[in-house]
Every structure is written in structure tokens, then in C-alpha cells.
Amino acid sequence: MWTPNPAMAFLSTLFSPRILAATAVALGFSLLNAAPAPIKVLIVDGQNNHSWKETTPVLKEILEASGRFQVDVATSPPQGGDMSAFKPDFAKYAVVVSNYNGDAWSKETNEAFEKYVHDGGGFVSYHAADNSFPEWRQYNQMIGVGGWGNRKAPESGSMIRYRAGKVAIEAVPGRCGNHGARVPFQVTMRERRHPIAKGLPKVWMHAGDELYDSLCGPAQDFTLVGTAHSNGQNRGTNEEEPMLLAVRYSNGRVFHTTLGHDVAAMHCVGFITTLLRGTEWAATGKVSIPVPPDFPTAQATSLRK
């Protein structure tokens, strides 16, 4: 995409192309205002207790359809395979999106990823990626909180809740990671000044999805961007649980979304929009992607296929 420079557009009505080009050079005009280069994204997948072969193409399509991202995919060996050769070149990308939940990576790959995020690389933890690597301390610092994988509180860390208008961090003993049946639920934006949330409705209805609760971890240096009420009648906690987190890990930015269990949930315009804006923020620290007119309301979901 490009747009003509307004000054040059006016001059083009007065002069020939040859004179116009010479004038542009003399006056320092650019004939075209080029759109910014696409942000390079790497999706990591290959193992997951979720249907990664179905969800990775949707993640890629969502990101590329925005016109803001250029996406590659790095697929690991299957479960039980030789992970020593799995060495994505993280440094080539502005942001890494994880759709991975499986075998441990090699020490070399772990260290490369730690350095990448530590030095300023962006990272997006998508849904079950927060189930991964329960023993990898630095990874758990990046995602803030995670679940399953034999995580237990307080050994694995604290839980993040939202109560009485403020964030509550507590180490409640118990298993970390739970969800009820997939149903639509409201997401409430808690830090509306954050670039990811700015301009979004305070409350919006998400499509039927798993509502993660009781996640635990280091819970450090984060902004609680969005929560949802975990209904006790749906095997929940009756707490406001974190759905969207923005985490700082040294010089890196991490967007953690628990949403998007399957392709049906990924059709939600709320999921699409927060994924796009969270990925851009993780990569750049800013958000230019607008809130679409079909964004869901507090009462009604909005789906886009």
C-alpha cells in the first residue's frame, strides 16, 4: 500500500514527469509515501495437546490478512523425536508466536530464545502455550502464569485475580490450571490505557471458548489487560481470572492470551483484534491496528470466518 505525497500530487498537475522528478530531488520530496515494512513473525508449533495443525493456519491467516505482518512457521519434530535439530532462528523475527505445548526444547534452543526475548524480541503466548515448559524458569517468567504440566501453587508460583477494583496476587495451595465447558463469556478490559486495550469497549462478549482459571507462576512485571468471570456453575472459581496479560521480560515484551482454544473460538472478532494488537505491541511497543466496526458488544458476540 502507498499513498501519493500531497505536495507531489499538486505539482504533478503543473509540470511534466521529467520536471517533476527533478523538482522532487531538488526539494527533497518523496514521490511515494511507502507503507511501513511488514512485521516479521515466526509461529512455532509441532506439538500440542490442542489441534495445532488446524489453528496454526488460522493464526497465520489472521496475521497476514491484516496487512501488518509477514509470517513464517517453524514446526518441531513430533513428540518423542530428536529435538536437538530444532533450532529456529528467532533473531530474524520481530515477534515469535507460540502455538507449542510439548517436549522440552534443547538447552541450546532454550538459551537462544531466552536471549532473543531478553534483548528485546517480542513473544506471544497463545492459549495452550501457557501449559508448556513447567520446569523452565525463564519461560514461566515470560508468560507470567501458566497451567497444567504438574504445576502446583505455591511451589510453581502465585495466581493473578482481580478483586474489588484492583489486582490480587496470591499463592493459594492447589493444582494450577482448570477450565469448564466451552461457553460464550464476557471479557472485561481492566487497563484501558494500555495500547492493546485502548479504544476497545470495556466489556465485550467472546465466542464459546475455554475460560482458563487458577493459572500460577512468577506473576511479575505484568499488566492485567483483560479478565473474565469464572462461573462456579461451570466448574469455575467464581473469580475474575486473567485472559489477557502484557508482561515485560527484561527488554522484551510478551503478550499472553488464554483465548482461542479452537478454530470456532478464533472466529471471534474480539479474539482476532486482541491477537493482532497484542502481536503488534509485542513486536514494536505500539499499536496502530484499529478497532474494527464489527467488534463484539457486551451483549452479543461477533464472528468472522
Rank of each mutant, 00 (worst) to 15 (best):
M8E: 13
I19K: 13
A22K: 15
L27W: 02
A34K: 10
P38V: 07
L42C: 12
I43K: 13
V44W: 14
D45P: 02
G46W: 08
W52N: 00
E54H: 07
V58I: 11
E61I: 01
S66W: 07
R68Y: 15
Q70V: 09
V71T: 12
V73G: 03
P77V: 07
A85M: 11
A85R: 15
A85D: 14
S98Q: 12
Y100C: 11
G102T: 09
D103I: 06
T109D: 12
G122L: 08
Y126K: 06
D130H: 15
D130I: 15
E135K: 14
W136D: 09
N140A: 09
W148C: 00
E155T: 05
S158K: 13
R161D: 12
G165R: 05
V167E: 03
G177P: 03
A181I: 02
A181C: 01
Q186V: 03
M189R: 02
R190Q: 12
E191W: 01
P195Q: 06
P201G: 04
V203G: 05
G208V: 01
C216F: 09
P218I: 01
P218E: 00
D221H: 10
D221A: 15
L224Y: 03
V225D: 06
N231I: 01
N234D: 09
N234P: 01
G236K: 01
N238I: 00
L244C: 04
S250I: 14
H256Q: 04
T273W: 04
T274D: 00
T279E: 08
P290C: 06
P292V: 00
T297G: 13
